[in-house]
Amino acid sequence: MRYTLGMAGALALFWIINSGHYSPLLLALGAVSVLLVTWIALRMDVVDKESTPLHLLGRIGPYFLWLGGQIIASNLDLVQRVWRREPRYQPQVARLPLPQRSDICRVVYANSINLTPGTLTVELKPDHLLVHALSEEGIAALEAGEMSRRVSELDR
């Protein structure tokens, strides 16, 4: 129920931000649309703690700030690799452990790896990730486990 309400709330917010017209007719149509979509989403069985991660909301902010820093750093690294006369990179493939138990955290972890340029999740298996990286440093940084630890903390 909590998740249903959360999703309906998010959808209503999406409608209001997009609409820009607040006549009674359009607001009523908006309410009907939100109800319809929520109903379809319930039928699709996509309303659960993964699609509406309310429990993460409090802790996700600081994580995104940290992730933003990582993204900028790895972008700068990639920029200097690309603009050399001879593009310099040493690709690596490695397996990483996947300690996160909940699907949402695994996805946050995998997509954080994807969002930082230079590392890319190729496969997400039940107990490990297959990661392709442009350099040994990229793999080493992931193996050091800071990102993994921070993602695990989200769920706690």
Binding site: I71, L78, V79, Y89, P117, L120, V122, L134
Partner: peptide, 14 residues
């Protein structure tokens, strides 16, 4: 191919 995919990642996030 995979290296090119990384290059796309640069343009797409930041």
């Amino acid at each position: 191919f995979y290296a090119r995919l990384h290059a796309c990642g640069v343009t797409e996030t930041l």
